[in-house]
Design a protein around this nucleic acid. Structure first.
Lengths: 214, 214
DNA sequence: AATTTTCTAGACAAGTGGTCTAATTACATC
DNA sequence: GATGTAATTAGACCACTTGTCTAGAAAATT
């Protein structure tokens, strides 16, 4: 059912833990990871703290040791997810071995494969929480918009590169096109989740690339 | 704050009500309407029955008289919303006074205006619930997909009409283009809600119409 | 060894969710 | 008009959630 996180086989001893090399707590990391997975599936409001804790076998005391509240946890998750995806973008869009537009296609393909791997149950955490804006603590709105803006900037840079190489029309508004990419891609992810199928992703990607001004 | 529904000024007596002319219950109708509004803002999981009931001044007992469960209520809301939007589509896309593509633009403009009217707090109920698929009772998935399919069919028919008039390339795959419209439009609505701005709607609409094969 | 720091354990209170039974009123029937 | 039935409301009820809080255990520090 859920391949990535299993109810902590770690012994999980009480008391102060031996100092980890890295300095960051193992438990905190586990919570963040599980949180990202579950929230990408179910969103913020529908997910209970207990559910996450049961899943990874961490007691409540630990949770509230590491995070001040559910809201603070949510904020941490959005940041984390934002970074994860940003790295993924960087990895693809920074691949100079390919022409710029092919890099973006690479990102699309990788994301598609990842959704398929998880049976199309998992969507985009930021998209999910964006949908919930109406009932989320105020701190989220700006944060989510910021994350989108970052991603959009990365795509815009890639499109710029394409334009410089003549793969796009000289007059192309790359920021606007990047915005369009994320608007549509999020819609496609949502729909792919609903229909448990990659088709929406393919349909949008094809339309997007075909519609770019040459 | 909320212009459309005010805490029932009706006396609301207990016991069997005097027979209404129309046959359908007034209370049930009020619940459906308020439900559509709130769920379009906050989604299913994050909305409590109590919240809806407080807002319209209906007691809990009434709710469970008219609806077997929250799930059944949700299903009724999806159907209702599906019909509302279907009528809106029909009204716009059936307007033979305009060329087909202009009709679709009309729908876009009307929807945009409506979102603005509600301060971009209200999104698409079906989109919202689609996002929540992961934590919704199973009955929703198919229903939501069905509603999308209906809307998509209406848009596809409009695009067909455009093709027949030569406004679209003869080889255009109208079903696929209609799918693309809804994929992107839902993404745009989501983003417009998040940023409390019409820009995402405009960006996507421009790209979509510009990208249609001529 | 004593103390401090870091984390775990899980009980607990307040509040919310959804459901259900009993009470209340109108209508129908005789 | 008395009795029975259908339609609706009132609010009790229980299970569950969130966040807090105290006690406890083990490493680190002195």
């Amino acid at each position: 059912m859920n391949p990535s996180i299993s109810p902590s086989p770690l012994p999980r001893r009480r008391g102060r833990p031996p100092r980890q090399g890295s300095g960051q707590s193992e438990t905190r990391e586990i919570l963040l990871q599980a949180g990202v997975e579950i929230l990408a599936e179910k969103g913020f409001s529908a997910t209970g703290i207990d559910e996450i804790l049961r899943r990874v076998g961490v007691p409540k005391g630990s949770f509230y040791h590491f995070f001040a509240s559910k809201e603070a946890f949510g904020v941490a998750l959005v940041r984390r997810y934002g970074e994860l995806l940003s790295h993924k973008l960087e990895r693809n869009l920074g691949n100079e071995a390919l022409p710029p537009l092919e890099r973006l296609r690479g990102f699309v393909a990788e994301s598609r494969a990842r959704m398929a791997l998880h049976g199309f149950r998992r969507g985009c955490l930021v998209g999910n929480l964006g949908q919930e804006t109406g009932c989320l603590p105020g701190s989220f709105r700006q944060l989510l918009a910021q994350v989108f803006a970052d991603w959009q900037g990365q795509v815009a840079a890639c499109l710029e590169a394409a334009r410089e190489r003549g793969e796009l029309a000289a007059g192309a508004d790359c920021q606007r096109l990047a915005a369009c990419f994320w608007i549509g891609w999020e819609g496609a992810v949502l729909r792919a989740k609903l229909e448990a199928s990659p088709e929406p992703l393919d349909i949008f990607a094809e339309f997007f690339f075909a519609g770019l001004p040459r």
